[in-house]
């Protein structure tokens, strides 16, 4: 536990110093929103129905950027080598990294979401706690498997290019459910209907959290 926290704190500290990852995540997320705004000109009247999808595409794209940095930065000076020498199970590195990736993504999501409120002229107040819950669980699912795949991708010859190719097919269940849940909240809230997508995302997170933790040691290489 102490070590998970140490990895997390270190990533946060590096990020506070450089702000590389968050800046690129934010910028890319907002760019995606703008591009979609043009792509959906014809939908202007029913924009509320399209927002959940656009939002999660933006989250997923910016999240992919963030995940790529999680291990690319460890490889720069062979830092991963130092991490690998820990005297306990290497799976804890997974949890530290996943925690950091989750926090980065959530920060980016909040800002992208606020931008989308402005761009798409939406007003939400009462819905915020529910949205927060959906964002949190969806992001956890995303990083649960994304952290493992990021460690895989960074050790291949294609490096960062490979991550989206691996990640998006696997992450589909989370995206589908997150879009669905966000849609339910934004279009006439029927909160009872939230239970199903939230359950599926939670199951996904728990299953892949466990599987990734168990397999993580095998994919690491400095």
């Amino acid at each position: 536990m102490k070590r998970i926290w140490a990895v997390f704190r270190k990533d946060l500290l590096v990020e506070l110093r450089t702000k590389d990852t968050l800046n690129s995540m934010l910028f890319f997320g907002v760019v995606v929103l703008v591009v979609f705004n043009f792509a959906m000109e014809s939908l202007r009247d029913s924009v509320r129905t399209a927002v959940p999808g656009v939002l999660w595409v933006a989250f997923a794209f910016s999240g992919t950027l963030g995940l790529n940095r999680m291990f690319a930065s460890e490889k720069e000076n062979g830092c991963l080598q130092g991490l690998l020498m820990i005297p306990v199970d290497r799976g804890i590195i997974y949890f530290g990294k996943m925690l950091a990736a989750t926090v980065f993504m959530l920060i980016a999501e909040v800002i992208i979401f606020v931008c989308s409120l402005v761009f798409f002229n939406l007003t939400v107040w009462n819905e915020i706690p529910y949205l927060a819950l959906v964002f949190l669980i969806g992001t956890l699912g995303f990083t649960a498997v994304g952290t493992l795949l990021s460690a895989i991708a960074v050790n291949t010859r294609l490096r960062e290019v490979l991550l989206p190719l691996l990640l998006f097919p696997v992450i589909l269940p989370v995206l589908v459910n997150a879009v669905e849940a966000t849609g339910i909240i934004l279009n006439g809230p029927d909160y009872g209907a939230l239970r199903l997508p939230l359950t599926v995302m939670t199951v996904f997170t728990v299953v892949f959290g466990t599987v990734s933790y168990l397999l993580f040691e095998h994919v690491l290489e400095d």
Partner: peptide, 10 residues
Amino acid sequence: AVFGIIAFVD
């Protein structure tokens, strides 16, 4: 092999 496991669980 790790990815094969992930894919099938998915």
